[in-house]
């Protein structure tokens, strides 16, 4: 099949950027979307042009590196599928596609389809962990954790940090991402000691990074390649509210207003 690609090209952070049009010919339906771009890039290099920069690594949908917007939808048209796992058989001959990077103030474009998602790391650093220094752990079976809780914690922990939720949200909110980590750890007994501090500090960092607020639109859940439910946002709000009401002292030491 042959496709027309309109791709966002931006040389660096300060460049204004623009759409450019390329032709992808003889696309094999068994190719992944990124393999299709590989072939386009080989042709661009051969004709002396700068290849399209896009982020990718594992190409099996788990590292969270890849992701861009295809015709207005983060990670393209297939549900629960990252770009690297999206195959060309879902497109048809003559399709015209528009590829754009994640758009959010907190995710500045670095080049073409690559954005800076380091804000996510800073949100985790603010409290997305259980402080258990190496060597201090009791026996693994000393704690019994109801299977339902372990399974629900796992569902939230499946987040790959790709940023599609932010890209899809009209407010560019990171609520699904932040809520997923708060839920994962909050559902487990190991996470209780730092639960209030975690909610306060992570939400404070979230705001500092210029992500927008959540207004329960649900676009994030719709595009999440791991099917994470917006229930995690409700958990985040509950933990945050409880912490803000009851842990006034902790809030101060935890680093600020939210």
């Amino acid at each position: 099949m042959n496709l027309k690609l309109n791709v966002w090209r931006q040389k660096n952070r300060t460049d204004k950027g623009r759409m450019e049009t390329y032709q992808a010919n003889n696309v094999n339906p068994d190719m992944s979307f990124l393999e299709m771009l590989d072939v386009v890039n080989e042709d661009l290099i051969a004709s002396g042009k700068d290849p399209i920069a896009f982020e990718h690594d594992c190409r099996e949908g788990i590292c969270g590196s890849c992701g861009f917007v295809v015709n207005g939808v983060a990670h393209g048209p297939e549900p629960e599928t990252t770009m690297c796992q999206l195959h060309m058989r879902h497109f048809k001959d003559g399709d015209e596609l528009f590829l754009e990077p994640w758009r959010a103030k907190a995710f500045p474009v670095i080049k073409d389809l690559i954005v800076d998602r380091s804000a996510f790391d800073r949100i985790i650093a603010a409290g997305g962990y259980v402080s258990a220094n190496t060597g201090s752990a009791p026996d693994g079976n000393a704690l019994q954790i109801p299977k339902e809780n372990a399974d629900r914690a796992m569902d939230a922990a499946a987040c790959i940090g790709c940023g599609a939720c932010v890209a899809a949200c009209p407010n560019a909110s990171a609520a699904l991402f932040t809520g997923a980590k708060i839920s994962h750890l909050g559902l487990l007994p190991q996470g209780q000691a730092e639960r209030s501090r975690r909610a306060l500090r992570m939400v404070a960092q979230f705001n500092e990074e210029l992500f927008g607020s959540c207004t329960n639109i649900g676009e994030c859940e719709a595009v999440c390649p791991k099917g994470i439910s917006i229930e995690v946002i409700a958990r985040m709000n509950r933990d945050y509210l409880a912490a803000a009401l009851t842990d006034r002292g902790a809030k101060k030491s935890a680093g600020g207003e939210a």
Partner: peptide, 16 residues
Amino acid sequence: DQCVAQGVPFAREYSG
């Protein structure tokens, strides 16, 4: 032990 303490959600039996 270390990973459980960090909150790694290992699979569990109904006993927990």
